[in-house]
Simulated assay, not measured.
Amino acid sequence: MCTYATVCERVDGSAKGPGGAWFHVTDATVYYDHPVHAMAEHSLNIDLADPSRGPGARVAVELTRESAERLVGAITAALASAPDGV
């Protein structure tokens, strides 16, 4: 079943892309649907990109549901461990 549920968010950060070069990312697109490459029926797909630099300025991740849930927990724990304002 395709969900077509897509969430887009503005971000400010960096990603390492093709060829090992770092680039600025401005957009995050997150959706739960069929993966392109991951060996799973469905996956949480995350694209980090700078659309102004064309299609090459993009990093894509496809995670199983369980892996995505663990990643959310890890992100929450890492942010909670940092003092406010840091």
Rank of each mutant, 00 (worst) to 15 (best):
R10P: 15
A80F: 01
T64M: 07
R65V: 05
Y32M: 03
A49N: 04
D84T: 06
G13P: 13
W22K: 13
G17W: 07
D47A: 13
R10W: 03
H37A: 14
L71A: 08
G17Q: 04
P55T: 09
S81K: 09
K16A: 15
Y4H: 11
H34N: 06
P55M: 03
R10D: 14
A15M: 13
G13C: 12
T76L: 00
P18S: 15
Y31I: 04
G20H: 10
M39F: 09
T3C: 11
G54Q: 09
I46T: 04
A74G: 09
I75F: 15
E62I: 05
D33C: 08
D84L: 00
G54V: 06
P51S: 02
I75R: 03
I46V: 15
V30W: 11
A82T: 06
Y32V: 13
W22D: 09
H37V: 14
E69Q: 15
L71Q: 02
E62F: 03
A15E: 05
I46H: 02
F23K: 05
M39P: 01
G73S: 08
L71N: 07
A15K: 03
D27G: 04
V61S: 13
L63Y: 05
Y4Q: 10
P55D: 08
A77P: 01
A74Y: 06
G54D: 09
A40V: 06
L44R: 00
A49M: 12
R65F: 00
V36P: 00
H37W: 06
V11S: 06
T3M: 00
M39S: 13
E69F: 02
G73Y: 02
A80N: 12
N45H: 07
P18E: 15
A77Y: 00
T76C: 03
T64E: 11
V11M: 07
D12R: 14
A49C: 10
A28E: 10
A74R: 09
L48S: 07
S43L: 08
P83F: 00
E62V: 01
R53M: 12
T26N: 02
P35N: 11
E66Q: 15
V36N: 12
A49Y: 01
L63Q: 04
G56W: 05
G73H: 03
E62W: 01
T26H: 01
L71S: 03
V30F: 14
G85P: 04
R65Y: 05
G85W: 00
L44A: 11
V86H: 02
H42W: 00
Y32G: 02
D12K: 13
Y4S: 11
M1R: 09
A78V: 02
L44I: 13
A82E: 09
S67C: 10
R53F: 05
G56P: 04
G20F: 11
Y31A: 08
G56L: 07
L79C: 10
D50W: 04
N45R: 15
